[in-house]
Nucleic acid binder design. Structure first.
Length: 109
DNA sequence: TTAATGACCTATC
DNA sequence: CGATAGGCCATTA
């Protein structure tokens, strides 16, 4: 017996939010978790992207940690690849290799 | 099946 | 002020 089918899990919630990120902007796991209602869901957010069931649909490269640094573990072909992707969208990187959160930090809608 | 981990963040001592 | 532990959800072994 299945339970309710329209039960939207937090996972899908994360996907919806990540997919809603406008081009040229980025967000952090904590921000998404906060939008979900629990700031501690940040772990789930990272896991959602890790599973990446819709890698082609979910711009994981737009999601960075709270420091504005990209997760070196999730880079598909190298951190450089991600930097190029973000720069291609108009995101500027700092000399330290971090993203300028003050410039592209996206706060939900 | 149970158990433990994980691309994290926040709160507390 | 600095460091530590906890927490939440789903996936994987």
């Amino acid at each position: 017996m299945k339970k309710e089918t329209k039960n939207k899990n937090t996972f899908e919630r994360v996907y919806e939010i990540v997919k809603k990120i406008p081009v040229g902007k980025i967000t952090t796991y904590g921000q998404i978790a906060h939008l979900l209602g629990n700031p501690h869901l940040s772990q789930v957010v990272g896991f959602a992207l890790h599973s990446n069931p819709s890698q082609s649909t979910i711009p994981c490269h737009r999601v960075v940690n709270r420091f504005g640094a990209l997760a070196e573990a999730f880079v598909f072909g190298g951190i450089n690849e991600q930097r190029v992707l973000l720069e291609n969208e108009g995101i500027k990187f700092l000399e330290n290799g971090y993203v300028d959160l003050k410039q592209h930090m996206w706060y939900g809608d």
